[in-house]
Design a protein around this nucleic acid. Structure first.
Length: 268
DNA sequence: ATGGTAGGACGCCTA
């Protein structure tokens, strides 16, 4: 028996619904977690997802900015929508669903990008990002014999040297500064989370999930970063059978600057 | 060292 979870920063779900439909038709993940939906819940395209068999939907949206949604082909229960840093941003939704005889608690996160200046003293957006990561320590990889946890999303940090096109050139660029990369890895270890992308494709092999819109030719310059992540509790990490980064989606018509990542699990 | 593109909503913020 198999089960798959995908994560994708869609950068406006309404604008890119044709791309979402193509992705779901071609890959059929059991669950898709979206970030940067950029619309209030009333304007979320529920019917388009239902038409594709994704009848079970949890949304936490806001006007114009941020916003997350989790859609599934099997029943899910909305567990909580956390307001980390208490700013009213919609950056988290947790759902619960069943797979492989376990109940899975699935956290979908959109971590603040943090602005351009990597100094929390002068840049409140960077301060917010660091505080947000710190507060994510309150989300551990809880599990027992019957339950497991998964955390996915756009974490806006590329933690390893193999997660960026140039470690040296990005050390002072927000998303790859030591305070962020060490902070994220420390938080991940503290929570007991396994980095499933790196479990399947170990460093130093490069993995990118984001390429800037500002490049003349994103594919030729290939200055990517791994900003999107799939983590799980140890008892589910053992069931991972594959990771797929759908790089081709970056070349679709009017693309997101992020591409989908799919994690596949197999159960006895 | 700089500027490059995109989305939401229509001047400017955020990424």
């Amino acid at each position: 028996m198999s089960f798959s979870i995908a994560t994708w920063n869609i950068n406006s779900v309404r604008l890119r619904m044709p791309l979402v439909e193509r992705f779901l038709a071609e890959h059929r993940p059991d669950v898709l977690c979206l970030q940067e939906t950029k619309c209030v819940d009333d304007l979320f395209p529920f019917e388009a997802f239902r038409a594709l068999g994704y009848d079970h939907i949890a949304v936490s949206g806001q006007k114009g900015y941020h916003g997350v949604a989790t859609v599934a082909r099997r029943p899910l229960e909305t567990v909580e929508k956390r307001d980390l840093c208490a700013m009213g941003d919609r950056r988290h939704v947790a759902t619960r669903l069943k797979a492989g005889g376990k109940t899975i608690l699935l956290h979908n996160f959109y971590v603040p990008a943090g602005g351009d200046e990597p100094d929390p003293q002068v840049n409140p957006k960077f301060r917010h990002k660091l505080d947000f990561i710190e507060e994510m320590r309150g989300v551990p990889a809880a599990f027992d014999g019957e339950s497991a946890s998964v955390l996915v999303g756009d974490l806006n940090i590329a933690p390893l040297e193999a997660d960026v096109w140039s470690h040296k050139q990005l050390l002072k660029i927000v998303s790859h500064t030591p305070v962020e990369t060490q902070g994220l890895e420390a938080m991940r270890a503290h929570g007991g989370w396994a980095d499933l992308m790196r479990q399947h494709i170990p460093a130093p092999e490069k993995i990118y999930t984001w390429w800037s819109y500002r490049a003349r030719d994103w594919e030729a310059s290939n200055r990517g970063r791994r900003l999107d992540h799939v983590w799980s509790s140890a008892n589910l990490a053992a069931d991972l059978t594959g990771i797929e980064v759908v790089k081709s989606a970056r070349g679709w018509e009017r693309p997101s600057d992020h591409v989908p990542v799919i994690a596949r699990f197999g159960f006895e």
